[in-house]
Structure formats: structure tokens, C-alpha cells
Design a protein around this nucleic acid. Sequence first.
DNA 1: ACGAAGAGTAACCGAACGGTGACATATTGT
DNA 2: ACAATATGTCACCGTTCGGTTACTCTTCGT
Lengths: 96, 96
Amino acid sequence: MRVRTATDLGAFIRERRVKLAMDQSDLAEKAGTSRKWIVEVEQGKPRAEIGLVLRTLKALGVSLDLAADRAQKTVAAIEPGNVDINNILDSLKKRP
Amino acid sequence: MRVRTATDLGAFIRERRVKLAMDQSDLAEKAGTSRKWIVEVEQGKPRAEIGLVLRTLKALGVSLDLAADRAQKTVAAIEPGNVDINNILDSLKKRP
DNA sequence: ACGAAGAGTAACCGAACGGTGACATATTGT
DNA sequence: ACAATATGTCACCGTTCGGTTACTCTTCGT
């Protein structure tokens, strides 16, 4: 599922929790947090901390993947047919 | 990229930012946050809030996907060949 | 009809957040 | 060598966090 907002996240977590037949207390314990926090996150709290979110996803057996959108190009790739010379130079420069 | 920890997240964000030839100030502005926050997140701050993280990923043209791990099964699916009768009943129950 | 279980809410509290502005180091281009 | 740029760090501050405990309100099984 593609997650764009905290609300998406909350919906996914709840759905997954229910599918695993856990109640909020179960999940809270497994994720090492409080039931109150689970309630808030499932409601889409945007200020929840990622650390807890990641632990919660782990407790739910959910993996999180990031991918650069094809639509958005790097500056070096905007000119068609270009080699990304800047990145090549950068990575060479960083070696001691 | 699979993200398991806040450190993973930070590394990905930095990598992506550099590829897009943005500095921390650029990204902070685009994501609607402060440069200080970008610094901390790139360093793997586990208590950063997801709302800002999601905005930052958007600013970087990165999509976030969640997927239930195949390994972990729902309770209803543990018994082989079972129909997930609980979920069916639940969804019927929820209709007004 | 009854009690149990799940979910949402409230008040309280210390701890940490994120923004600002300034300063200190790298690192870069000329 | 110099100035410009980028990154990391600091102190300060108002705001909000997350945990705890207790209470309500449904919904459920019996």
C-alpha cells in the first residue's frame, strides 16, 4: 500500500492489526509502546515518532520500502543522454 | 530500499537529497521544516515525527510502500485451507 | 439481562520536540 | 590565500509528546 499521509499509515496499521486478530493492548505490548499511542496512531496522528512507528510495523510483520519516483529526475539526469558525472566525481572525491 | 530503522531512513534521505543536488536548506524549505531538523533526521533521529518525514519524502519525490510480510500469517490463515470467516463476518457486520 | 472485552477519551507530568539565530568547521571555487 | 558555500552544533523557548491511570461507551458472548 502506498502511504502518503499519517492517516494512510493509521488505516494500514489498524487493518493489519485486525487481520492478525490482535487488540490494541496486544499490539502496544508487542511494539513496546502504550495503548494510548496505538489509538492515536490509528487515528492518523501526524506527530507520532518514526521510531515507534517502525517498531509497530515490525510487530505487525510489515515491511517498509522507499523508492525514488520515476517521474522525478535528478538534476544530472534532466539533460537526456547525460552521464551523471557529478555523482561520479563526488564519490571519487569522498575516498580518502 | 527496505527501511528498518531511523538510521536507514536518514541514509536514504541524504542519498536522495544529494542525488537531486539539493543542500539541506533547499530540502528544509521544500519540505516545510527547518534545516536543523533535516540534519537530525539524516543522522537517524528516531523521534522525528512522521508527518514531517512524509512531507520530506514527498519533497524528494520518494514513494513509501507498506507490505505485509509473506512469512507472517494472519491467525485465520494459520490453519491450512481455511476461509477467513472472521473477516467475512466482520465486514458484513460493519454494514449499516 | 448480565458481565467481559475492546475501544476512545481525559488529566497529569517529565521529557523531548522542532524552530530560530548564531557560531564553528569543513569543503569548494577562484 | 581568500571568499563563498555547506554542514554540524549550540542555547533558548514554547509546544507537544508518550506513559499512566481511570473513566465512559459500545459490542460481544452467554
